[in-house]
């Protein structure tokens, strides 16, 4: 067993790129579900909106804006990149939130669940469809939008950083990701302790009570959906930058459920819940992955139990088992408060 490699992989899972992406998406979902009680089963659509917001602006729309026979705006690549970031983080998620929220937020919570899960798939299938190849690059997706980002990197692309954990570009992405994540968690902390956050919690507990006290529950839910969507979009955008690719199948329904797992694992309705949940989720997945792989390679795990190609599936089975145990023995999540959770039953 190469314990050094195991440790390295596990730490990369705990603090690496996927942790950042899923923690950000889970912060958004925490605003939706943990604080407002919105059942959003389509967080992947906000992540996709972030990825495609950037990619479409830079790769598809940008050249058309600069077309000498058309608008001929002559925007530089850097300008296009930052415009793309704005579209990814603000415009697209707000549009998605309005599309999903307007018809459903007046209704019972389950309608939002149905619409969000459907919207996420509709978005993905449209992005995949050959008909929109000119816009979204269909199933191949779009690439060529992350150069501006990595050009800003102070790290040597060939070098290895932080105890050789990350190579140059990865290090830059992870560093930016941590800063964004810290700012997001801090913002979330600020707004949740404000009167605005208090109204959200009241809506989660009982919408009619909030309404009887003069709070426009519909509008607050919409705001929460938008804001949580923005955090999801930031996560999705970083995911696309990390892959240097915005591809529809990076935003399948499973992605939404990983976000849910991260949130529930950490503890919904707690500021640090999404961060801890995402870190542990990917820490465990990466640990079991390399641990089992090495076990198979060394012959410690016989072929009759599993082969190297089955490791990927087995670690998800173990994760599932872990979730079942969590639900049975610690339903409030790792940092949740059991007494608080039990108040539901009264």
């Amino acid at each position: 067993m190469d314990w050094g490699a195991i440790l390295e992989n596990t730490i990369r899972g705990l603090i690496g790129e996927r942790f950042i992406v899923f923690a950000l998406a889970a912060i958004g979902l925490n605003l939706h579900f943990g604080y407002t009680g919105l059942l959003n089963f389509g967080q992947a659509v906000f992540m996709a909106a972030g990825a495609y917001g950037l990619a479409i602006t830079v790769v598809t729309i940008g050249p058309r804006l600069n077309d000498p026979d058309g608008l001929d705006l002559g925007l530089s690549t850097t300008t296009l990149f930052w415009l793309g970031v704005f579209v990814a983080v603000v415009v697209f998620p707000l549009i998605m939130a309005l599309i999903m929220g307007i018809p459903t937020l007046r209704l019972r919570a389950d309608y939002l669940a149905i619409v969000t899960i459907a919207a996420a798939e509709i978005f993905r299938l449209i992005a995949r469809s050959p008909r929109f190849d000119w816009l979204t690059g269909s199933s191949d997706g779009l690439s060529g939008f992350s150069k501006t980002f990595y050009d800003m990197s102070p790290f040597d692309p060939g070098g290895r950083y932080l105890f050789d954990l990350f190579i140059g570009n990865q290090m830059f992405l992870v560093l930016v990701g941590w800063v964004v994540l810290a700012l997001s968690a801090f913002t979330c902390w600020l707004i949740i302790r404000s009167p605005w956050g208090r109204v959200l919690k009241a809506i989660r507990e009982d919408e009619d009570a909030a309404r009887s006290l003069g709070k426009n529950a519909y509008w607050y839910k919409m705001q929460a959906l938008m804001l949580g969507g923005i955090f999801g979009a930031i996560g999705g955008m970083l995911r696309a930058i990390g892959f240097s690719l915005a591809q529809p199948d990076n935003f399948i329904t499973d992605v939404t459920f990983f976000v849910w797992v991260a949130l529930i694992l950490g503890g919904a309705g707690k500021i640090m819940g999404p961060l801890i949940g995402a870190a542990i989720l990917y820490g465990i997945l990466d640990f079991t992955d390399i641990f089992l792989r090495q076990g198979v390679a060394n012959g410690n795990i016989p072929e009759s139990i599993m082969t190297g190609t089955q490791v990927g599936q087995v670690r998800f089975m173990l994760m599932g088992l872990g979730l079942v145990l969590l639900a049975a023995f610690r339903p409030q999540g790792i940092i949740g408060n059991k007494e608080e959770m039990a108040l539901d039953d009264r």
Binding site: L190, S194, W196, V199, K215, Q223
Partner: peptide
């Protein structure tokens, strides 16, 4: 109790931060 007060400035999203 505090939820009940009307006209709270901090109930605006942009002010909350």
């Amino acid at each position: 109790m505090k939820l009940g007060a009307t006209g709270q400035r901090g109930e605006k999203l942009w002010r909350s931060i």
